[in-house]
């Protein structure tokens, strides 16, 4: 068949083959952008449905209501990721993901290369208090869910550390991105010291998660329809827990311990991203 079609094909003008490839590529690109649009639209619809479900289930004492809402968000994000995989828009791999299994408070800290990192993490963690930007707390789709889940506002550094330590003291896990915003392409912003302060104050171990995405997509400032040619692969590597107590040796002040812990965390992520670069 293939041979026949080649024989029957009309003479090809010079350069036509090279023109055909980009047009096929453009078509594939448009098809991928369309599927991405469908995924984002379904996220918006899903948010309305989840807001309705959490409105009905938002009864009882605040702590139980928050945990119930977080569990609903967890399942909704799992469903949405499954839909993303069905649409062939992403592949997700976890390395040492079992380190996030089980209960007990933990401080999960991750770099933030793409828009959906928080979704990947909350789809894995059935309970996590995360820190939400003002924009998300004002977003008409998200604000009610954010409020019902008891997610924390990132307004005041000192008060935020107190709130996070308080949640950990209640046996809850906290998720945060120490860069405070999405990472620059292929790298990291300088880490803020909030994660270290929370760990030192609460005594809770930090569980580091190094996230990579290849080819890069949904970066800061990149529009949703600016899709890559291939299907992006997210890899989330969970590191061994870091005990903050070892930074509080005799003679070390809290600010010094926070600086050292933050510097070590930053180095760990730089190393993790560097290793990923070498393997790719």
């Amino acid at each position: 068949m293939t041979v026949t079609s080649q024989v029957a094909a009309p003479p090809v003008a010079p350069g036509a083959a090279s023109r055909r490839v980009p047009s096929r590529r453009r078509l594939a690109h448009g098809w991928r952008a369309l599927r991405t649009g469908v995924a984002f639209a379904s996220f918006g619809v899903g948010a309305i449905v989840v807001a309705a479900i959490t409105a009905v289930s938002a009864r009882g004492v605040p702590a139980r209501r928050e945990l119930r809402t977080q569990r609903i968000v967890h399942h909704a994000f799992r469903l949405w990721l499954w839909w993303m995989v069905c649409l062939r828009l992403c592949r997700v791999s976890w390395i040492d993901g079992e380190r996030l299994a089980g209960s007990g408070p933990r401080l999960v800290v991750a770099n933030h290369p793409t828009l959906i990192d928080v979704i990947l993490l909350l789809a894995r963690l059935s309970q996590a208090d995360c820190i939400v930007k003002t924009a998300a707390r004002r977003n008409p789709f998200m604000r009610r869910i954010v409020a019902r889940a008891g997610y924390l506002a990132n307004d005041d550094g000192d008060a935020l550390v107190e709130s996070c330590a308080d949640r950990i003291a209640q046996g809850r896990s906290v998720l945060l991105f120490p860069e405070g915003t999405r990472s620059p392409r292929g790298g990291l912003h300088r880490f803020q010291r909030g994660a270290a302060h929370i760990a030192l104050k609460s005594g809770c171990p930090i569980v580091p998660v190094v996230i990579t995405c290849r080819p890069p997509t949904l970066l800061k400032g990149q529009s949703w329809h600016d899709v890559p040619d291939g299907r992006p692969q997210w890899v989330l590597r969970v590191g061994a827990p870091i005990d903050p107590a070892r930074y509080l040796d005799a003679g070390s002040t809290l600010p010094v311990a926070a600086r050292r812990l933050t510097a070590d965390l930053q180095a760990l992520y730089e190393q993790g991203l560097g290793a990923d670069e070498e393997h790719s």
Partner: peptide
């Protein structure tokens, strides 16, 4: 020095 450092300071 971040906001937490300033309080401690």
């Amino acid at each position: 020095l971040d906001s937490l450092d300033l309080v401690d300071f």
